[in-house]
Amino acid sequence: MCVAVPGKIIEINGDMAKVDIMNNICEVNIKLVSAKIGDYVLIHAGCVLEVLKKDMAEEILSIFSELEEI
């Protein structure tokens, strides 16, 4: 139910935006966020829930760099 997928905003028309989800172009609502063209976003049930902050590779690197020894 809470499944969400990442996509990239390619066009904005008011509250709606076209997003590219792995080469599928979908229309989603962006009212819950402040997003701009080119942003990577997290999409759930036809809505953008959040703008993703950085590349996932970068995120995983930063998580591991913060880990402390057991």
């Binding site: 959040e50 993703l52 902050k53 995120e59 930063s62 998580i63 880990l67 057991i70």
Partner: peptide
């Protein structure tokens, strides 16, 4: 993500710590 989160949990428990840690900082 999941391995890092489990590692953090094991680290906290081994050190007798118990706190919130956000490891999904992208979103």
């Amino acid at each position: 993500h999941i391995l890092a989160a489990i590692f953090e949990i094991v680290r906290q428990i081994s050190n007798n710590e118990h706190c919130m840690k956000n490891m999904y900082v992208n979103a």
